[in-house]
Every structure is written in structure tokens, then in C-alpha cells.
Design a protein around this nucleic acid. Structure first.
Lengths: 178, 178
DNA sequence: GGTTATTTACCTACCGATAGATAGGTAGGG
DNA sequence: CCCTACCTATCTATCGGTAGGTAAATAACC
């Protein structure tokens, strides 16, 4: 699954191949089918684990610090880390570009990732001492999620992490990020 | 080329198929190869025309109005229009997700699209009466380009144009957009 | 103007590679 | 004894791309 995840993060769901995964881990492609009968099963398992891991990490951030500014900083660092790690994308970010071609079981997991991200961001924004209406917080959360995803995509295209850093910093000074 | 462009906007470069294009226009795939010997030739031609059209339209916007706020509004409307039109993506936006797998001749065109967008946005931001340093303007332009692309991707995933509208509006009230 | 040569834009019929998926067999540990 | 986790072998579908042929339009020449 680690190999498959890396493949998708680098080249998208479509480029995920049973034969390539099998070759990388030293077995035959039929053996992968034994654990994941269809490609949709494999893709859904990847996205599910990815989202679950994210939820756990994000919750641990909130438990460690109630400061929105710090939380958001750690949040953007997660997306930054994907770029640092072999110029990869967020698994569900790159999959969402192929959304219409994904098997249904994969699509629901990709959608869930976006949902939990927005939900968590909404919660963090609501912690601000200044106070913010729930509906506004949710819109702002969606805007942040979209902006970070876009920044990751653009920075990866440029192969330049500083482009990501400067873009996120621009979001901050502009007032989009707390 | 219109058919091919629509296919890429909907499903990405990888899903672009000579046979599918040929079927849609009522010829055989070999006839497409006559005009575009390789898939890279076709993809590069699509991206080149797309970028050239964008440059022409953006320049006409600047000629029609020197007001940054109005220009940016028209700019975001271009990306909005793609969503309205069959829930499509920006051609080069979706291609940039597959950047590492693109033939070189396609990749340079995709990169050029991002470049001309950032350049144009930089020029528009520089028109602001408040005055802005060139380097800051360019960073801000990149941030805007990334944010709009991200908003388009997220809104398409939700199949909800109002998500795009609200996100752009949030960018505006936050101060990212003039 | 009429004839010939060339080019354009398509066609049929393939090729090799690769994809996901399946059937059926086998070694080994509990 | 049987189940887990692999294997070999193969299927069908689709991919980009090529070879070679053809009808019609166009250009060149006498």
C-alpha cells in the first residue's frame, strides 16, 4: 500500500498499475489481486487509510495547541511535506483531478477527505478569540483548503518549494489565514 | 481540436484518445495521426491555442478597463465559465496535475500558460493606485493564480458552482483579491 | 485548355505494449 | 487437513502508432 500510495501521489490514480506495484514489492500482479480484487478496492483502501491518518493527526494538533495560528501552520506544513518528499501531491488532491473517472468506492473516500479537512479547518477557525459566525467559518475553511491545494499543485509544477512557502505566506499576510 | 480540448478538460491528458476523438468527429484514428503525428503533437497544439487565446482575451480586458478590481473579476469569471460549461476544468490546470507524465512539448506549453497568467496578474496588480513593489506583486499574482485554480478544482469536485463563487468572494473579503 | 503530376485527407488493416482481471495450481504453516 | 498467500498462464480490451492504399482536389506544364 505504501508503494501504491506513492505511485498515485506522483502520477495519479490512472497510472496506478497492478503490475508496477507487484514489481516494486517483488511479487506477481495476481498476488495483489488476491488482497485487492479490483483496482477500485485498492484505490479506496489507499484513500481511506490516508484520510484516517489525516484525521488522527489533525485531531492531535488540536489537542496539542488551541491556537488557530499554530494549528494552521502545522496544517500547511503537512502539504509542504508532500512536496519535500519527492515532489509529491496530496493523495486525494491529485485524485480529485480525476474525480469523474474514479470508481464510485474511491470517489466517496476522496470526497470524505475534502470534507474532513474543511470540517477541521472550520473548527480551528471557530477557536479564534475574535469570534466568527459558523457559516462564515465554513466558507473560509473551504477557501483555505482550495488555496492550499492550488498552491501545492502550482508549486509542484514549478518544482520549487519556495513557491509554496511564499504563496502560503502571501495568504497569511493577505488575511486569508489566521 | 475542440473535441480533444473538451475531452482533456473533462478527463485529463491521459484520457485523450485518438480513437475517441476520431469517433466523435466521424473519422478514423489514422486520420487524426495525419494531422497530429503523435499524441504529444496534439496535446501541445491544444495547449498552445488555449494559451494564445487566453493571452488575447486577457490583453483585451486590460485594454477595456484599467481598474484592477474589474479586471480580476473578469479574470475569475473565465475560470467560472469552464465550470458552468459542463463542469470542466481549465485545460492547463488539469494538465498540470499530470505534469510529470506529459511529453516535453506539452509540458512547456502548460508551463507557459501558468507563466502568462502570473505575468498578466502581476501587471494588473501593479496598476493599483496604492502602489505595490514589483516583487510583492508577482508573489501575490502567483498566490491568486494558485488559489483560483484550487477553487476551480474543489468546486468541480463538489459539482457546485456556488462553492466557487463563495470561495472567490472569500478571497476578496480577506484581501487576497483587489 | 487539356493533360499530367503532386498533394491532401482520408481509409483498411495491422503491430507491439500494456491494462485489469480470471482460472487453476501449489508450497507451507496452524 | 485446510486455508493463506502466493504462483503460472491466459483472456479481453484498449492504447499509440505505422504501412500502404485511394479518391479528389490542386498545381505544373506543354
Amino acid at each position: 500500500m505504501d508503494v501504491a500510495r506513492a505511485m498515485v501521489q506522483a502520477h495519479g490514480y490512472n497510472a496506478l498499475s497492478f503490475r508496477e506495484v507487484a514489481k516494486a514489492v517483488g511479487v506477481k500482479s495476481a498476488s495483489i489481486h488476491y488482497h485487492f480484487p479490483t483496482k477500485g478496492d485498492l484505490g479506496a483502501a489507499l484513500a481511506r487509510r490516508y484520510t484516517d491518518d489525516a484525521v488522527m493527526y489533525f485531531d492531535s494538533l488540536l489537542a496539542a495547541s488551541a491556537d488557530p495560528s499554530t494549528c494552521i501552520r502545522r496544517y500547511t506544513d503537512v502539504f509542504r511535506a508532500a512536496l519535500v518528499n519527492d515532489n509529491r501531491m496530496c493523495l486525494c488532491g491529485i485524485m480529485s483531478a480525476e474525480r469523474d473517472d474514479l470508481p464510485a468506492e474511491v470517489r466517496v473516500e476522496v470526497d470524505r477527505f475534502a470534507e474532513v479537512n474543511v470540517r477541521w479547518l472550520t473548527k480551528v477557525l471557530s477557536l479564534q478569540p475574535s469570534g466568527i459566525e459558523p457559516e462564515i467559518a465554513q466558507r473560509r475553511a473551504l477557501a483555505i483548503y482550495a488555496a492550499i491545494g492550488g498552491a501545492q499543485l502550482v508549486a509542484r509544477g514549478r518544482g520549487d518549494i519556495s513557491a509554496f512557502d511564499e504563496t502560503v505566506e502571501t495568504y497569511r499576510t493577505a488575511g486569508l489565514l489566521p
